[in-house]
């Protein structure tokens, strides 16, 4: 079998009041097909729930989809909670409708990557595969 000995574990979910889950499900499925173990939390998670889940599941990274416009508060909140709980080694990345001008600030705050509309799925898979060596 060509299965990697230790698959990556990645949390994929949606935070806040945002019901658009078509994209995030496609990403979860594509990463599954790339050999990743996806912990899928579903919709309407609070930042607290995301961080607790990431810790319980011992994931290497969290990928959040945000289409609600609340990215400037939700991403920093998740980063803050991760650091508070001694889990700052967990990588945060995200995707959704995020205007150009917000990207530099979020990246400076510690969001490792932001995938915006029309990103090829291949780019996301490649990014996640790149996390394999960081632990």
């Amino acid at each position: 079998m060509t299965v990697a000995a230790t698959p990556l574990r990645i949390l994929i979910g949606k935070v806040g009041l945002d019901g658009h889950d078509r994209g995030v499900k496609l990403v979860a499925r594509a990463l599954r097909d790339a050999g990743v173990e996806i912990i899928y939390t579903g919709l309407h998670q609070s930042p607290e729930q995301i961080v607790t889940t990431a810790i319980q599941e011992d994931v290497q990274a969290i990928g959040l989809s945000i289409h609600s416009g609340a990215h400037n508060s939700l991403f920093p909140r998740v980063l803050g909670l991760l650091r508070e709980q001694g889990a700052g080694d967990i990588v945060l990345f995200g995707g959704g409708i995020i205007p150009d001008e917000d990207v530099p600030r979020l990246k400076a705050a510690g969001v490792q990557m932001l995938f915006r509309p029309a990103t090829p799925m291949h780019d996301i898979v490649e990014f996640v595969n790149g996390l394999r060596t960081e632990r």
């Binding site: 990697a4 698959p7 979860a28 599954r32 097909d33 050999g35 899928y40 579903g42 889940t53």
Partner: peptide, 22 residues
């Protein structure tokens, strides 16, 4: 279940239990 082809998985059982993460 893990995929027998790629080894990947979508683990979704806890969606029904997420209220207990608090």
């Amino acid at each position: 279940t893990s995929s027998p082809v790629t080894g990947g998985a979508v683990l979704g059982d806890r969606i029904r239990m997420q209220r207990h993460t608090d």
